[in-house]
């Protein structure tokens, strides 16, 4: 597995697509999730209407709300980027036929895929660290520009928030990676993953949420469970929103971990057993 991990690190580092994806994530988060929100709420348009005044809403981008704001933003764009990252990491090997080049070297099939998984775990960890650090810095700059005062979340909240962010990144990356192995096609893996994220689960959640049967199904879906984890980190100016959550944060965390294991095991089973090449 170490040999595979070392090979993966070289491939990952030199692949521009990975850097571009990370750049998109970071830029979108900082520019739209922080800078744009701050300037719009600092100078709200005349027709701006909200139960919460803009000067309070603006505090969303301040350090006190670092964790809920980052988690809220990354639940959509972050999940999408991670699905693409995971899908690219495995499906490209089939597209370029490099899977057969790899598999005729020394490591076993399990070692090859576990090395890839370990690399993805490291990447998602690094992305989570840099994302949190960059948003914290941006948040600090904005509160300084604003001349307001704010407090940082406690170390416990920061640690839990970081764990939640990494877990969510890891689950969606594993989902993309699994789809890449299952479909052996980059387009199908990414298309399928994004369709599920933005159409499948979202549609069920928004349109059929009040149907009892669908509600039971929703309790088991990754997006809903990720949302439950997010909800446990609430914005300082919002009251706890437990009524709309189908599951609590603990169950959400356990379900996400179960998905992480399931995607990994399924991908391993398929990768180990399936023929490479031939008709």
């Amino acid at each position: 597995m170490i040999a595979s991990l070392r090979a993966e690190s070289l491939k990952t580092r030199k692949r521009w697509a990975n850097w571009i994806l990370f750049g998109i994530l970071l830029l979108t988060l900082l520019l739209i999730g922080y800078v744009l929100v701050y300037f719009v709420l600092s100078n709200p348009p005349r027709n701006f209407q909200s139960r919460v005044p803009a000067r309070i809403l603006k505090r969303e981008v301040f350090p006190e709300n670092l964790i809920p704001n980052v988690l809220a933003f990354t639940s959509s764009i972050g999940a999408a980027i991670m699905i693409i990252l995971g899908g690219l990491s495995t499906a490209s090997e089939y597209g370029w036929l490099t899977v057969q080049t790899i598999l005729i070297q020394k490591p076993s099939r399990s070692a090859v895929l576990l090395g890839k998984l370990a690399m993805l775990a490291i990447i998602t960890l690094l992305i989570a660290v840099v994302t949190l650090a960059a948003t914290a810095l941006t948040s600090y700059l904005l509160v300084t520009i604003d001349g307001s005062s704010s407090t940082w979340p406690s170390a416990t909240v920061l640690l839990k928030g970081f764990g939640a962010l990494w877990l969510e990144f890891a689950v969606w990356t594993a989902f993309g990676m699994f789809l890449g192995v299952a479909f052996r096609s980059t387009a199908a893996a990414i298309g399928g993953g994004l369709t599920y994220l933005f159409v499948g689960e979202a549609l069920l959640g928004q349109v059929f949420r009040n149907t009892d049967v669908v509600k039971e199904v929703l309790r088991f879906l990754p997006g809903i469970n990720a949302g439950a984890v997010h909800a446990s980190f609430r914005l300082t100016f919002r009251s706890p929103d437990t009524a709309t959550q189908l599951v609590d944060a603990t169950r959400g965390t356990i379900t996400l971990l179960a998905y992480l294991v399931a995607f990994t095991v399924l991908a391993l089973l398929i990768f180990r057993r399936r023929d490479v090449g031939g008709s």
């Binding site: 040999a3 595979s4 070392r6 090979a7 070289l10 491939k11 030199k14 692949r15 521009w16 370029w96 036929l97 490099t98 899977v99 057969q100 080049t101 790899i102 070297q105 020394k106 490591p107 090859v112």
Partner: peptide, 21 residues
């Protein structure tokens, strides 16, 4: 012959060498 198109020939061999130990 299947290799990573975004890597140079030398880097491709380095990747293969790492896999092969």
């Amino acid at each position: 012959p299947a290799f990573y198109p975004y890597l140079s020939g030398r880097d491709n061999l380095r990747v293969v060498a790492r896999y092969a130990g």
